[in-house]
Each structure stands twice: as structure tokens, then as C-alpha cells.
Design a protein around this nucleic acid. Structure first.
Length: 349
DNA sequence: AATTCGGGGAA
DNA sequence: TTCCCAGAATT
């Protein structure tokens, strides 16, 4: 039995029953693929269910506001995916008359859709022979064929795409693509794969040469920078609170947070004045403040470690941009902020 | 070609 | 801890 036959046979016996596998609707396929970018099935599944329920058609998604879409996306991370999702939904609904692009070339033009996602939608929804190369495919192919070209190098990306394209079953591209990804996720796992029960052990170069643990090869890791965040939780006696929208570049674009002042180091309880907010933000208004957490709350992102303090500022007259505390749940916020909101007892104010 | 986008799962 | 996840866009 050859590679394809063993792979698809394994798939038919081991595939998970996932909701996006029970449809050919390109809208649902697209939605699932965007959600699953750099995201494990277990984490993305509840979000997929919520989006399908809230936005049954692409027109429902197109007619939503970005704030609503981001709110439903809250907690999933990589928020440009949600912004691009909404942009593309509007484009398809209003410019393309709701007609979903039905081939790799046109799918690739959509915002938020790159080589992997265009291939996935084209093959799964439209049966086009387009090979997917995701993290799972890199791992399976690098091990089985014993390829040590770094998977995140330009040459590696081309080499694996070419290899996958030469292997894909031209009769069943949808099944082959999903099979090799599922195989990588469940059998040919990153750590401690059970090669003893692997149906592909016969031809696996990495297994013969003892390279299973060293493949695939990936170029270096990114450096992490530390940042020191001071959030100003400004509330008045009527339970109104100041919320601001993050604009510009960087993390959490278009999400909401409490007014933020960065410092060059972690501040102590008696160093509030170093934030220089008396004159700028509060313009001489009278206020009291206290520190919610003496030890930093450390929020870890891929490239940043955020050492965070929440300063509770009780003030009579709020600066611009205040909302009732009870309306906080209407606004999309980073996990760092939503965790605070869910923990802090505003009744103490 | 390298960096920048989150957050959580799994060992 | 560390690595990884059904990657894409930007620099």
C-alpha cells in the first residue's frame, strides 16, 4: 500500500466528527479555516459554534458591526483574523452579491486568506486539486521523507508545497488534505508520537534513522520583550467607568481597555505619581486611588510579556469616554482586561 | 527575509 | 518551562 492509501485509510478510521466536516458550504468552510489558523481544534470549536449560531449566513456576518464580531472573537487571539473576516464578509456579500469565490486563485485575493486557507477552501468546498501545507503537513512530510530543510525558510516553504502538491490525491483532494492534517494532529504528533502503531512506519525515514524527535527543523525562536502596563480603572460613585479603544498598530487593535500608561519598570504602591496623570488625564480633578494588585499580573503573549498593574481611581467627574459599568460586556477586550472585569467587584466602589 | 500579530493545550 | 497550534500581513 502506498502513502496515500495508508493515509486515507487511517483517516477513515480515525477522523473526528467535527461540524465543518458535515458541510460543503464555502461560508462555513472559510469560517472554520480562519478560526483554526494557529489555533487548536479544541480551542476553536466553541467559537465556530458561536459564529455559526450568531451569523448563520455570510449576510448576517456582513451586516454585523466590527465591535460585535470582535466581541464574539474575544479570547481567541490574533484579532486581525476577526477584522479581516468581517471585511471579507462585507466584500463577498455586497460586492460579489453573496457569491463565494470558488477557486484557489480568486480565494487567495480575499483579505485574511493566504496560501494555506485558499488551498483548504478550494479543495474542501470545491474539490480543486490544491495541496494544503500547515504545521501538521510540515511535520508529517519532514519526518516521513526525512527532510531537514527548515520549514519556515523560503526554500523550505517552496519545497514542502511542491512535495505536497506532488502527493495530493487528484481524485479526492478534499479527503487527502484533511487526512494528512488530521494524521499530523493525532498520530504524527509534535511530541511522543506512538510510532509503534503508526500505519506509515514502514516508509518513514525519520523512524528508520531515529530523527523523529529532531524533525521538522525550524529556524530560531523570536525574542520576547517585557512591557510594564498600568491600567487606570477610573470609576465614579454612579458606577460609570472610562473605556478607550485601541487604535493604530500593535496588539489588540480596535479592542477596548482602561486608559493605559506604560512605565519603564514595575511601579510600587507609592509611585503612582510617576505615571504623570494628574495634569494630563485628570486635569486637576480631585480623585482618590489605590492599587488593586501589588504584585504584577503577568500576561504572556508570543512576543511580549506584560507586567501589569491595575490602579483603581475613584473620581467624581469622569474624563471623556465613560460608560456604565453594567455595559462593559458590550465591548470586546483583551483577556487581560476581561479577566480583571470578571474578578473585580465593582460593588465596592 | 524577518517580524509581528494571542491565547491556550500538552509534555 | 518550552514548543506548538488546520497562518497571514507587514516590515
Amino acid at each position: 500500500m502506498d502513502f496515500n492509501k495508508k493515509l486515507t485509510n487511517w483517516y477513515s478510521n480515525n477522523k473526528r466528527d467535527l461540524p465543518w466536516r458535515n458541510t460543503k458550504n464555502p461560508y462555513y468552510i472559510w469560517l472554520s479555516e480562519i478560526i483554526l489558523q494557529q489555533t487548536q481544534v479544541k480551542q476553536g470549536l466553541p467559537y465556530y459554534e458561536a459564529f455559526v449560531k450568531t451569523y448563520p449566513t455570510i449576510f448576517d456576518l456582513a451586516n454585523a458591526t466590527e465591535q460585535e464580531v470582535l466581541k464574539l472573537w474575544q479570547g481567541l487571539g490574533y484579532y486581525s483574523r476577526a477584522r479581516n473576516l468581517h471585511t471579507t464578509a462585507k466584500h463577498i456579500a455586497f460586492n460579489l452579491d453573496g457569491e463565494f469565490p470558488n477557486n484557489y486563485k480568486d480565494l487567495l485575493k480575499l483579505k485574511g486568506v493566504g496560501d494555506y486557507t485558499a488551498s483548504a477552501i478550494a479543495s474542501i468546498a470545491f474539490n480543486e486539486v490544491a495541496a494544503v501545507v500547515d504545521g501538521n503537513v510540515y511535520r508529517v512530510l519532514s519526518r516521513y521523507f526525512g527532510i531537514d530543510t527548515p520549514i519556515n525558510s523560503t526554500s523550505g516553504i517552496k519545497e514542502f508545497k511542491k512535495l505536497a502538491s506532488s502527493l495530493i490525491d487528484r481524485e479526492q483532494p478534499a479527503t487527502f488534505n484533511q487526512a494528512i492534517m488530521e494524521f499530523g494532529a493525532r498520530q504524527c504528533k509534535p511530541k511522543n508520537p506512538d510510532c509503534a502503531i503508526c500505519p506509515l512506519q514502514d516508509g518513514c525515514v525519520a523512524l528508520q534513522k531515529g530523527l523523529v524527535e529532531t524533525l521538522p527543523v525550524k529556524l530560531k525562536k523570536t525574542k520576547v520583550t517585557n512591557k510594564y502596563f498600568n491600567f487606570l480603572v477610573c470609576v465614579d460613585q454612579n458606577k460609570n467607568i472610562v473605556l478607550e479603544k485601541r487604535t493604530g498598530k500593535g496588539i489588540w487593535q480596535n479592542l477596548y481597555q482602561f486608559p493605559l500608561v506604560e512605565s519603564k519598570r514595575s511601579l510600587k504602591t507609592n509611585e503612582f505619581h510617576l505615571l504623570n496623570v494628574e495634569e494630563e488625564l485628570f486635569k486637576g480633578l480631585k480623585f482618590d486611588y489605590w492599587l488593586y494588585n501589588e504584585s504584577d499580573i503577568i500576561h504572556k503573549l508570543s512576543h511580549q510579556h506584560l507586567y501589569t498593574k491595575f490602579w483603581i481611581v475613584e473620581i467624581n467627574e469622569l474624563p471623556k469616554g465613560s460608560i456604565p459599568v453594567k455595559n462593559l460586556d458590550l465591548y470586546p477586550t483583551p483577556v487581560l482586561i476581561s479577566d480583571f472585569i470578571n474578578t473585580f467587584n465593582f460593588n465596592n466602589i
